[in-house]
Design a binder for these strands. Structure first.
Lengths: 352, 352
DNA sequence: AAGAAACACTTTATCGCTAACATGTGTGCA
DNA sequence: TGCACACATGTTAGCGATAAAGTGTTTCTT
């Protein structure tokens, strides 16, 4: 038919059906299997045909169909990464660590965002698992029962990250937020502060912030100190919120001599507020945040904080997945990596 | 055999092969096809069987295999999103917009990060296209020839975002950075500033920053004004860099009366530096950034900036993809959406 | 009351690839 | 010379789903 001749001559960009291995095999005069071998660098293929195939493939602009490939080989080089948010900076940094390690493997991360919503987490997880990834990296140890069941049933490596205070499904990489809270409390008490205020996010769903808070109050309680005031926020620009909350709290409870913020962003806001108001830091009032975000480097004074080891968490988690998918006898299971965050006293903690 | 009996009785979490439609169909006594129909809510199924199937499916913990589904139906509900970075905050916001829109469709975004490296972009794109997504959203108009070829050949909707100054492959959503640079220059000149310094990233690969710079200098030139000093940075904490660069520049060129920063983060650093030094802003020196990041709300003074419409860009891009994949006659092609960024003069531009 | 149409399913044939095995060469070694 | 064996390819049979077409039942129609 004319039409066919046409199509063969110069595929009119539009109604051209997608290229397959067959097209490449015909163009290079070998079997589809050989083309497949060349494209995957697997098995014995002579240099001559290899070149011929590669050329034909490039010529046509062929892009392999991984869907078909994955189905046939029962192997998917994807790693599902499920995190609560991208606007927190914490998680992009974790992703950086994951990328770093996976870049040297055939594995590829796929990110899903839950917005701190367990229901959404479950949905996202279901979606991701339906692509049959080689592994899952998921933030937190708290998940819906259904989500836990899915993870257990998936039969793939699962690494829960960020937090080690709790029962992991399989492997686990993170820091103990409870301990982090305790450490900070100790440091603050040691510096001599006694009237301590806490400022943070509303915590029903931010389990890690909650655990830090619990560890924090636990140590204070042992010394007979109670949180003198507290304030919680939700949404909005964290920096601005930090400002506002600090103002509110200092007006309400002027005798405070220390403010512990559940993250560096609101802490930075508080710091800026104090400096604005001419409040002497850390003399009159001490401040500390949590996370060690890079941002802080540019502030007029260095906020005391605690590094959450974000990049390292990402790296370690990715390494576990990579090792387990590579190693023949899919060895391990249940790895547990607890990193130790260090206090960075900055300029706002020691009372000189 | 004993072993089989065992496996049937109580699948010992380990050597259990993954569940398939067949397992569900056997468990509920209908054909695989019927199960498939139920799970996808498609076609006629009686209420009775529907329930039976759903129960069996939940009971077993079945998760459909989208790989197989996609291959069979030749439909993949993924949208590839290719962006240069996640640590810039600009892109997470774009993603937010994309998510917002796609959440109401069956489509799902998959993110790839290029680190501003064209070669990496090409690789990431290749990877993504090999999953045969329903569409591509990609940042920028500048791509390697091979990347452009792939995009053209893919036969799917392609939306290039962020930038409208140039030739799009297919659709395009963004702002004109050249115009944004021009507008800012006009506003600065109008406010009476004449000794203007520019601070930004090293630009070989950040085409949008480059275009803003070009637009900016173009307008200045028309008025016979030349950039009095300039400074570029790379890597590190943007806030800290803003501080440092500002210090360096003001020491080198004390007669400057305005500093234009290529992004808000370094602008904020500069602002903090000026306030620290007791330099009167905007009296003695005016400042402006670019992007309208939320962060700025918390600063002691509101930095002049220009909203880059990030969330809206994400929304519009996603809408184009969604519309084209839904609509029967896959209508359009070549949509072009140019958004208009507005100057937010804040407290650092008008000379009172 | 007979044919059409709606319903509730099942059967069959792919989708594009890869695993596993089959086939056909040339080489080395006894 | 012949047999093993590495190499270079081809063949066949799925992977787990869905589209499309097929098979019985009901339920309208008029």
């Amino acid at each position: 038919m004319f039409k066919d001749a046409f199509v063969t001559e110069k595929p009119p960009i539009k109604n051209r059906r997608p290229l397959t291995l067959r097209d490449v095999s015909e163009a290079s005069g070998v079997s589809e299997m050989t083309v497949s071998r060349v494209l995957r660098n697997r098995g014995d293929v002579s240099q001559a045909t290899r070149e011929r195939v590669l050329e034909a493939s490039k010529e046509l602009g062929y892009v392999p169909n991984k869907i078909a490939g994955a189905l046939a080989s029962q192997r998917v080089n994807l790693v599902a990464v499920v995190i609560p948010s991208l606007s927190n900076m914490v998680f992009p940094e974790v992703l950086t660590g994951i990328n770093e390690v996976l870049d040297e493997t055939p594995l590829q991360p796929v990110v899903g965002v839950t917005n701190y919503d367990p229901e959404r987490e479950q949905k996202v997880l279901y979606e991701m698992l339906s692509w049959r990834p080689s592994g899952v990296i998921i933030a937190g140890l708290e998940h819906s029962d259904a989500a836990k069941a899915m993870l257990k049933a998936a039969g793939i490596p699962v690494v829960e990250i960020m937090d080690t205070d709790g029962q992991a499904i399989d492997a686990c990489v993170g820091i103990s937020h409870r301990r982090a809270g305790r450490k900070m409390a100790q440091a603050i008490l040691k510096a001599g502060y006694r009237n301590i205020g806490f400022l943070g996010t509303k915590m029903p769903l931010d389990h890690r912030a909650r655990k830090r808070f619990e560890g924090f109050t636990e140590v204070l309680a042992k010394e007979g100190v109670e949180i003198a005031d507290r304030e919680f926020y939700e949404g909005g620009s964290a920096l601005a919120k930090g400002r506002e909350m600090t103002e509110v709290m200092l007006k309400r409870t002027p005798e405070l001599d220390f403010l512990y913020y559940s993250n560096d962003m609101i802490g930075a806001g508080g710091l800026l507020y104090c400096l604005d108001q001419g409040i002497s830091v850390p003399g009159q009032i001490g401040l500390a945040g949590f996370n060690g975000v890079e941002l802080l480097d540019g502030l007029p004074r260095q906020l005391a904080t605690m590094d959450a080891c974000r990049v390292e968490i990402g790296r370690a988690a990715a390494r576990i997945i990579a090792d387990r998918t590579t190693e023949a006898g899919d060895s391990g299971g249940g790895e547990r990596v607890e990193l130790t965050p260090m206090i960075q006293p900055g300029d706002t903690l020691s009372r000189r």
